[in-house]
């Protein structure tokens, strides 16, 4: 019986697509590219690579998007070249596709672009390299931390962070003092993999940063890394002008079970922002100190039900740990 009428066609007729890709009409070529992309046909890769050189930017863009499914050396080479396309949308599509890649074989063509004269190309190359997690990126990425362009430095941190290599710690700490806000934030976030003892200084610097988003990131890092040495600075951060920083500090003090923070946390029990009071209630529970109960009983009568819930739960935690 005629199965064809019921089911989508399996695969795709490559000869037919190849012929249509030679059409005079750019729209016909574009439609052929889309069909090829959807077929998932592995043998279609070469045709899509060729379509990246199409005179019509719409066809090139469709081909660049379609190549995201061909994680490997050939597609990576072609897409790396497409990062230089004169049409910004084609380059953006190539950038997006490269970010899907995981195969280490995709690295060489991207590494060859990390020294490119255009900063946006260098940044895109680093974005593509991050997910590949290849050791060969380590040295050039460290070098890229001194790039003149902030976006490049930020993306290079991403590639380094995925490697989780302790030898990069010092360089990332240095990047934590970068002029650019987003670079400092990324560097601090990247350090979460390193042992607390190695990154304490960066955390303390970050907590003293001039921009609140960096202080917020540093406060969060302290808890994630288990940096007990940051306790005093975190307590100071509870008084930060920006409540978001105080909130992360409270969360980290809870994680660190910082017994010395109870009084300072308690002082925030009447803070106007309920998100912060909620975090304070949670932290006091995690610290599990009896002297927190007076603050928690106040928080258990808070006007905000989330704060009350957490406070009650924290009281329960303290009660049950005392038993």
């Amino acid at each position: 019986m005629a199965e064809r009428s019921f089911f989508e066609e399996q695969g795709v007729d490559l000869d037919d697509v190849a012929e249509r890709l030679q059409s005079e009409d750019a729209d016909a070529r574009r439609i052929a590219v889309v069909e090829l992309a959807e077929s998932g046909e592995p043998a279609g890769e070469a045709l899509l690579v060729a379509a990246l050189r199409d005179p019509h930017s719409g066809v090139r863009r469709a081909a660049a998007s379609a190549l995201e499914q061909f994680d490997g050396a050939a597609a990576a080479s072609a897409l790396a070249e497409a990062l230089l396309d004169e049409d910004a949308e084609v380059a953006a599509a190539a950038d997006a596709s490269l970010r899907q890649f995981r195969a280490p074989e995709a690295a060489p063509p991207l590494l060859s672009l990390v020294g490119h004269e255009r900063a946006d190309v260098r940044a895109a190359a680093w974005r593509g390299l991050r997910g590949l997690r290849v050791a060969a990126t380590l040295v050039p990425a460290l070098r890229a931390l001194d790039d003149v362009d902030a976006q490049v430095r930020r993306e290079a941190i991403g590639a380094l962070a995925y490697l989780k290599d302790e030898t990069t710690t010092a360089a990332l700490i240095r990047a934590g003092r970068d002029d650019h806000l987003e670079v400092r934030r990324a560097a601090l976030a990247a350090l979460a993999f390193a042992p607390a003892s190695m990154i304490l200084e960066a955390i303390l610097d970050g907590l003293a940063d001039r921009h609140w988003r960096v202080r917020e990131t540093a406060a969060s890092l302290a808890g994630r890394a288990g940096a007990a040495g940051a306790e005093a600075s975190l307590i100071a951060a509870l008084a930060d002008d920006v409540w978001q920083v105080a909130l992360e500090a409270a969360r980290s003090l809870g994680r660190l079970r910082a017994g010395g923070a109870v009084v300072a946390l308690g002082a925030l029990a009447t803070h106007p922002v309920s998100n912060l009071r909620k975090e304070v209630a949670a932290a006091l529970g995690e610290i599990r100190r009896h002297e927190a109960l007076c603050h928690l009983s106040l928080l258990a009568e808070d006007s905000d039900p989330d704060v009350r819930k957490i406070a009650r739960w924290s009281i329960h935690l303290i009660d049950s740990s005392a038993r």
Partner: peptide, 9 residues
């Protein structure tokens, strides 16, 4: 629109 050229997306 390029539906007349075979697009049905």
């Amino acid at each position: 629109c390029i539906a007349d050229k075979g697009c049905t997306i």
